[in-house]
Amino acid sequence: MTSITLRVNGKQVTASVEPRLLLVELLRENLHLTGTHVGCDTSQCGACTVFVDGASMKSCTMLAVEADGREVTTIEGIAAKDGTLHPMQAAFKECHGLQCGFCTPGMVISSIDLLKRKKDPSEHEIREWLEGNICRCTGYHGIVKAVQHCAKNGGAGAVGDATKKESTNA
């Protein structure tokens, strides 16, 4: 077992894990942050996308020990402290950017990453960026509209409660 310490959604987490434990398993099974989904488990669908040190990554294709000392933000960590939806979440709601909702956490995280890099992406750029996120309901039309809506209404803004300093043990 290896001891790791990381910040998850602004909170410091210390855990003792097997080196083979995947980051997504740490999040879902140890920390009970089940908003991050496992769709394909083969690095293709993007349902497990989270931020690691501010860049979107597939948590099914990263070991928990690789997140030692890093800052992880999941879908649970992007809304404001008072529960107000993150602008991207609000845009997905407004534009019907979800059907069954399974791919949504990954879609939202990836879309925020895109707007952090490009303030006003074209439809083509949005579709290209979201290649790593698969919606099996094929609801891409609403998803693309949501990203455009968010971009046109103030952008993705800041993410979550990263200022909190509480500690928990997993």
């Binding site: 990554m57 597939k58 790593g132």
Partner: peptide, 9 residues
């Protein structure tokens, strides 16, 4: 290469 998440890592 791959997709945005893969390219980030």
């Amino acid at each position: 290469i791959g997709d945005a998440q893969v390219r980030n890592r």
